[in-house]
Amino acid sequence: MNVKMEIIYKTSKGTESRFTSDEMRAPKAILIAEDLEKMKRLKDVTFYDSQDTSWTLKELKKFMKGIQTEPHNVTVYFDGGFDLKRKKSGLGCAIYYDQDGKSFRLRKNALIEELETNNEAEYAALHLALQELELLGVHHLTVAFIGDSQVVINQLNGEWPCYEEELNRWADRIEEKLNQLGIRPEYEAVSRKKNREADHLASQALEEIEITSTIEIKS
């Protein structure tokens, strides 16, 4: 979870000034606020998340403590591939998250036959990732979704119109699942090179190599 801080700083002589920070991870923001409190220079602080919901320091600390045992700090990479000759689609997703003070990576792919285009495969890959998030128990969090499909990212962001009926149905399915889980999506389009992990998973699915794995990432 990322937040911005709005701080009212007070000098030893009583002069006050208001500052707004850059966006940062919530634990870092809490650490800075607590340090300012120790210096007795912090008159007031308010935290704002990506939905502009405001939090006091006490509220944010309580929230962060409560989610430590659940998956959080979630980032999803997704990609879809389509084999026109065989009319088969490969879907791939890689999910990074923290839980119980540890970091994990989940990889999942799937081979399906009912799609007609590469854009449908891209949407289906994102939907696959949402199903995995549901199985993980991810809910009521901001989640970063990263893919190399400009079509999917820009349509879901509302920046591009969607004229294809089938793609609209996929977008509706995704929106419904996001609402069901209480997930606030943040979409980011990247190059295929930066999305190589999900791309490789989708390619493996087309080769009928099934991947389902979760590992702990140790620093």
Score class of each variant (00 low, 15 high):
residue 37 E to I: 01
residue 37 E to N: 13
residue 38 K to S: 13
residue 38 K to Y: 06
residue 38 K to R: 10
residue 38 K to H: 14
residue 39 M to K: 11
residue 40 K to T: 10
residue 41 R to D: 11
residue 41 R to N: 07
residue 42 L to K: 06
residue 42 L to C: 03
residue 43 K to T: 04
residue 43 K to I: 00
residue 45 V to N: 10
residue 45 V to Q: 11
residue 46 T to E: 15
residue 49 D to W: 01
residue 49 D to Q: 09
residue 49 D to N: 08
residue 50 S to L: 05
residue 50 S to A: 11
residue 50 S to W: 11
residue 51 Q to W: 06
residue 51 Q to L: 05
residue 51 Q to Y: 09
residue 51 Q to G: 15
residue 51 Q to E: 13
residue 52 D to T: 03
residue 52 D to A: 02
residue 52 D to C: 02
residue 53 T to R: 11
residue 54 S to C: 01
residue 55 W to E: 12
residue 55 W to N: 07
residue 55 W to I: 00
residue 56 T to M: 00
residue 56 T to C: 01
residue 57 L to D: 15
residue 58 K to N: 12
residue 59 E to F: 00
residue 60 L to I: 00
residue 61 K to G: 07
residue 62 K to A: 10
residue 62 K to M: 05
residue 63 F to L: 07
residue 63 F to C: 11
residue 64 M to K: 09
residue 65 K to S: 12
residue 66 G to C: 11
residue 67 I to C: 14
residue 68 Q to E: 13
residue 70 E to P: 11
residue 71 P to I: 00
residue 71 P to F: 02
residue 71 P to H: 13
residue 72 H to D: 12
residue 73 N to V: 02
residue 73 N to P: 08
residue 74 V to H: 08
residue 75 T to S: 13
residue 75 T to C: 06
residue 76 V to S: 06
residue 77 Y to A: 04
residue 78 F to V: 01
residue 78 F to G: 13
residue 80 G to P: 13
residue 81 G to F: 01
residue 81 G to C: 05
residue 83 D to A: 04
residue 84 L to C: 10
residue 84 L to D: 14
residue 86 R to Y: 08
residue 86 R to G: 13
residue 87 K to W: 10
residue 89 S to P: 08
residue 92 G to K: 03
residue 92 G to Y: 02
residue 94 A to R: 07
residue 96 Y to T: 05
residue 96 Y to M: 04
residue 97 Y to A: 08
residue 98 D to Y: 10
residue 99 Q to F: 09
residue 100 D to R: 15
residue 100 D to L: 08
residue 101 G to P: 15
residue 102 K to F: 07
residue 102 K to P: 15
residue 103 S to C: 10
residue 105 R to M: 05
residue 105 R to Q: 15
residue 106 L to R: 12
residue 107 R to L: 05
residue 107 R to K: 13
residue 107 R to A: 09
residue 108 K to N: 14
residue 109 N to V: 00
residue 109 N to D: 13
residue 111 L to M: 08
residue 111 L to S: 14
residue 112 I to E: 11
residue 113 E to G: 09
residue 113 E to P: 14
residue 113 E to S: 11
residue 113 E to T: 15
residue 115 L to V: 02
residue 119 N to F: 03
residue 120 E to F: 00
residue 120 E to R: 02
residue 121 A to M: 02
residue 122 E to M: 02
residue 123 Y to A: 02
residue 124 A to R: 06
residue 124 A to Q: 10
residue 125 A to W: 04
residue 126 L to V: 03
residue 129 A to F: 01
residue 131 Q to M: 03
residue 132 E to V: 00
residue 133 L to M: 09
residue 134 E to Y: 01
residue 136 L to R: 15
residue 137 G to E: 15
residue 141 L to S: 13
residue 143 V to R: 07
residue 144 A to I: 01
residue 144 A to Y: 06
residue 145 F to Y: 06
residue 148 D to I: 00
residue 148 D to T: 03
residue 149 S to F: 03
residue 150 Q to I: 05
residue 150 Q to E: 15
residue 151 V to M: 09
residue 152 V to I: 05
residue 152 V to F: 05
residue 152 V to E: 14
residue 153 I to L: 08
